[in-house]
Design a protein around this nucleic acid. Sequence first.
DNA 1: CAAACATAGTTGTTTTATACAACTATATTG
DNA 2: CAATATAGTTGTATAAAACAACTATGTTTG
Lengths: 215, 215
Amino acid sequence: MEQNIIVTVDVVLLTLRDDRLQVAVQRRDKEPYNGQLALPGGYIHDDEDFDAEGSARRMLKDKTGIEAPYLEQLETFANSARDPRGWSVSVAYYALVAPESLAAGQLDLLPVDGLPVLAFDHNKLVAAAVKRVRNKAAYSSLACYLLPERFTLTELQHTYEKILGSRLDKSSFRRKIASLDFLETIKDEVQAGRQRPAQFWKLKQGRLTIFDKLL
Amino acid sequence: MEQNIIVTVDVVLLTLRDDRLQVAVQRRDKEPYNGQLALPGGYIHDDEDFDAEGSARRMLKDKTGIEAPYLEQLETFANSARDPRGWSVSVAYYALVAPESLAAGQLDLLPVDGLPVLAFDHNKLVAAAVKRVRNKAAYSSLACYLLPERFTLTELQHTYEKILGSRLDKSSFRRKIASLDFLETIKDEVQAGRQRPAQFWKLKQGRLTIFDKLL
DNA sequence: CAAACATAGTTGTTTTATACAACTATATTG
DNA sequence: CAATATAGTTGTATAAAACAACTATGTTTG
């Protein structure tokens, strides 16, 4: 059995900035697609990486300096047409991060709606990641990973609203959050401002909580 | 860049028989894991397959003779430990089929709960597929693909119940199905028996319908 | 052939969750 | 200290689901 297949990992790194989902892209400095924008990614190193997820973490760390709090396998894009070098496999991951933890460095952030043409089939990867996030946010604690560790319920509600693209009722949202019981208040920590101070909250457990549709 | 990675596709073919989910397995006739039970699958043929899904369809056709009505990418299992031959990638798919359309042939069906040890990491693939199906069935028309093209609402309700592992209320179930509007009656076709005949139904469109949680 | 039976399918009511609306609370600012 | 801005709560109307009882229509059986 002789295979000639390229195996890569690509990461769709998403954040919520200026009230909309944005994706991290980098300009390529080698062929193919030299000079074009692309997702952070590259070959799996079979001598170095234990598994694909480890490979994704390595890419993210090396190419952007980030260790994202949320990383999940998205989908695998595998065919003979997506890479001019031949049959290729991209195991795609998506990562969520708070905009605060992104140092303006070697990566550009672009809004996911109205993206320019990216290298390879990376527009498809972004579209798949955005669809996944929009869908999964509706019935999980996913949205929290687009915020810093501490956040107010108003911030969280706004985050859900931006992702889902619909307004949520404040009282219903708060009753639901309380009943789902995956957040806890941070005692004595409040957000100051020119109005009544807001309670800070954080995730109770580290891992994602799945629940029935939010609202 | 020199990679030495094996790229395969495996298919978790599921059906509902004897009131429980069962998976199709085959005994391997070559190394590694010669003689052990494994999922239908094999190398991607980069000279023959256009993409991974096409490869999965080919495997399914060649190894089991089946063209499953429902086939979806599940997850990719990729690491250096899962195959004794070295670093390997398995792009896993899952397929759903009605038990009626499975000719007792070159494949065994085993209940997904209490499975023996399979070759490679195939127990993990089955577990992932079962989890996906149990989860996705709750908010989609997925269950229909485990039934023949024509079915009664009682059969469909039983199917949902077996997958979800919980009882559903008959009147609520039927009101919900009616409101979701993804099924249509087959005029003048009813299931006979020793009681009042039941109306036959079928999917309105070919593709999967996603809705909010069923009940 | 009518009564018993078995399952299909419907209707009405109670309970629960969400939508909608109005309210109170607590800080800052001028 | 009143105005104002946002946090957070409470009450009520509405919609959906759970629960319960009913009717419908075939076959089987005495």
